[in-house]
Nucleic acid binder design. Sequence first.
DNA 1: CTGTTAGCGCGTTCAC
DNA 2: GTGAACGCGCTAACAG
Lengths: 300, 300
Amino acid sequence: MKELGYVPNSSAQNLRRQKTGMIAVLIPKVTNPFFSQLIESMEIAAAENNYQLIVCQTRYSAEKELSYLNLLKTKQVDGVILASIQNDWNMIQPFLQYGPIVLCNEYHDHANIPMVRLDQTYGAYLATTHLIQQGHTKIAYCCGEHDSHIAAYREAGFMKALLENSLSFDETYLFRSSVSIEAGKEIFLSIANDVKPPTAVFTGSDEVAAGIISEAKRHEWSIPEDIAVIGFDNQVITEIIEPSISTIHQPVEKIAMKSIEIMIEKISSKVYESNEVHEFPLQLIIRESTNRQEKGSLTR
Amino acid sequence: MKELGYVPNSSAQNLRRQKTGMIAVLIPKVTNPFFSQLIESMEIAAAENNYQLIVCQTRYSAEKELSYLNLLKTKQVDGVILASIQNDWNMIQPFLQYGPIVLCNEYHDHANIPMVRLDQTYGAYLATTHLIQQGHTKIAYCCGEHDSHIAAYREAGFMKALLENSLSFDETYLFRSSVSIEAGKEIFLSIANDVKPPTAVFTGSDEVAAGIISEAKRHEWSIPEDIAVIGFDNQVITEIIEPSISTIHQPVEKIAMKSIEIMIEKISSKVYESNEVHEFPLQLIIRESTNRQEKGSLTR
DNA sequence: CTGTTAGCGCGTTCAC
DNA sequence: GTGAACGCGCTAACAG
């Protein structure tokens, strides 16, 4: 009898079984390649478990973040994955009574919820140590503005590498609030005008590295001879640009899948508090922008 | 009394008012920059109208597309925006009885639903005419495999430009199924081995253009002198690569916003059939990869 | 204008 | 084993 086209109404099912099969993922914006990779992998993992993903772009706004957290309160979603945090933890904590919240690629010391993260300190340490091994002693440091927690961890790794090699940091080599290609171009101009310019730059993003390289080439600087540059994220542009950009690879699919896995477990177990931390290591990828040997070779 | 934290349960609201406030957007994959831009703009427009967006990645699978269309049938979403079509229209048409479907950046001659599209024929015509004006007569043509409808329209524009200039097309200059940087590299190798190579290439994508340019440079070909290359999409890489890539800009935000606007109108009016077509023009952006004049200048 | 009531469509329980 | 009934939480309609 149901052969004439019956399908259950999912709103009724949702109401009855107090469950929606929806997970909200909060990110700043989906056009950031890091976050689009995250969403792509999460969507695949969610779909395999019969969950739908709702994209929530906070655009770095604390108010938008709170308004999206209300999806939990109103039971529009079964859980929220925070891949970006703008509010203090005490603003977010109250929402935990309405459903599970998982931190992905973010970290809060006192948050009693699952955290899935990348070891940013180790990543920055790897990158900086590599620059030092290439003979650099005057190394500039760039970081973003929005990713405050992440920036702090990277800075720790950067400083640790300097310290281990008895190098000191020159404050004029510090560039904050740099996230875009444009910012990278400006950083190059600052460096070019420096009376005692650094010979290498640690950037917190491939975009910034690309901007520095692009502007450096326009001014006929050689890379890595005149200045070595290392990116962060291993985006596609790192392989396109001439010279190709050394960078740090972040295993995005791993944190995406782990976050979904944990979220689904929290939804079914109904216990939302947890101190579990899942950490994945980053990986150094050496290309031409830091390595004189590799440059110019025709082999892959 | 409600001051002690009452919020309506939205599952109950959904059930009662037969509406979910959710719109599903079907795309192949979110890491394709064209689609992530689409999602970004759609999400903003949807949020302004109190709708949530569900990302549905079909990965070019017809079955997945149908399974996501079931979200309409089961009333999990109020409408579906198809930004990618894998099935025949007669497979999709039956779902129209359950809710509105809007075509975005896709086109079906006999589909009686709203279509929001870009004038691909005109875009390819612009690009090809530009190459011809630069003096090229032997022009190669690359297109993708998945975007069959779009490819057909672009091909028409390409051919129209050739015809208007009394040029003929050499079948050996045709490269199908090319979408990636890797494919672009292979295309260059084919061209380099051609006894009578083309002097310009129309590519259906910036990635392919980037691949061709990257490989050409490795083999010490000059661009645009030895070979001119034009991309499609105006992705960020077009400005990073040396030389910068001439391309066709697609007003993604416009089709995204228009699609959401129409979807919301269809949801409230409850009439789903429509023959409206909203078309937006593409725009030629001339950079260095096709233009000897612009190359090497230090001005922006 | 305020208060009560009847479903929305399902899943679970309870009675048979 | 099958089937009827209740209620998930809300909103719209209706009565007072």
